[in-house]
Design a protein around this nucleic acid. Structure first.
Lengths: 210, 210
DNA sequence: GTCTATAATTAGATAGAC
DNA sequence: GTCTATCTAATTATAGAC
């Protein structure tokens, strides 16, 4: 039997679509302009709704920000676990290389990730607390555990994991985070597949020596 | 004969000091909150003057931003050329290692540099044009020229200069730019000399292999 | 659910006294 | 030079019609 929706839904069908449009617009503008710089009017305009509707679906600008960030990290987690799923039985070094490449591809497609973290680090307020404890720390713990294993196996130089973490999270996304600058300086298009692949090659060469 | 100021000065002595206080406050707040997020009222408050005085010394918020950024890059240029001055006759590899260490030390002391570039990249407007052409391109040209020479000599892996540039400008300052996050995640103090030195060691290890 | 209208706050800039 | 007072515009959030 096909699954039927028996529970009476409390929201109209149009609302889900509207929420998604608002969330997508919010992510773009929060990451481009920061929390304060992004106005709810402009988010509403990009989502093609009126501004008070944001307060209907998300009770405040702050709640909207949190919902948009949750969606961003959900996409990152999905990309990384999808990649990991195909890696049963593969040695840790190969797995690490593929995860680094996946992280770079994600950073190129969604530079919003690094941009929002950078933005909130500067403000260093309650949104930062929430962001670190809810989303960043699990990522940090997983990456440093993998790096420690690789260092023990001699595949990475003996560098404290925290430094390794910030070398990776700096070297991987900066070309895309500073995309407009990169375009002006080098003439390269940091959104093109060739440049993303070349950057993944470069970072792997840098990290693993080949 | 000691140099005497014979030219009649058009400004009162107090004004220079006031301008400097305003510039320092502006740099801090622009880099922490971005151009839009920083209010001239708050800059004035931190500089211990009233808000209309900013419009007296700098004709607009935009001009104040430019003056603050000029000061920041002047400090960077001074740090790097002071370092270079003592390097006559030293081979290019040693010079590059010392310059990388100097850049990391500067990034740790003045994370405002990378923060302001990141902020303006997101907005990608006329301030970005000004910033790239006036300040960033000379830096980029110098660094990529040095890297190309080192790659030809076999001291660096064969990575295109643009990618090397963004690996360096990502790996070097990110730990300090995301300082508040780093503190929470690792317990390290990214402003301490030990951590800055350890990070310079780590980056040089990856870049030069030792 | 989605709208129009608006309240309450805050922003950057200017006028003018001293 | 530096201040107080104020203008105009833009912000987030709320009230209430449909």
């Amino acid at each position: 039997m096909a699954r039927t929706v028996t529970r009476t839904r409390r929201t109209r069908p149009s609302a889900d679509q509207t929420r998604e449009r608002i969330l997508a617009a919010a992510l773009d503008l929060f990451s481009d302009r920061g929390f304060d710089g992004a106005s709810t009017r402009e988010i509403a305009q990009r989502a093609e709704v009126t501004q008070p509707l944001l307060n209907y679906h998300f009770s405040s600008k702050d709640d909207l920000w949190r919902a948009a960030v949750d969606g961003l990290f959900a996409a990152l987690t999905r990309a990384m676990t999808d990649r990991t799923a195909g890696l049963r039985g593969v040695d840790e070094l190969t797995a690490a290389r593929l995860l680094v490449r996946e992280f770079i591809a994600f950073s190129a497609e969604m530079p919003q990730l690094h941009r929002i973290i950078t933005q909130e680090c500067k403000v260093d307020g309650p949104r930062m607390d929430w962001l670190v404890e809810r989303h960043v720390r699990p990522m940090y713990d997983g990456i440093t555990a993998l790096f420690s294993a690789l260092t023990e196996q001699g595949h990475l130089p003996a560098i404290p994991p925290a430094h390794l973490y910030y070398i990776l999270t700096g070297a991987a996304p900066t070309m895309f985070v500073l995309g407009p600058e990169c375009r002006r300086l080098s003439g390269l298009d940091p959104t093109s597949d060739e440049v993303v692949d070349a950057h993944a090659d470069a970072v792997c060469m840098f990290l693993f020596g080949h």
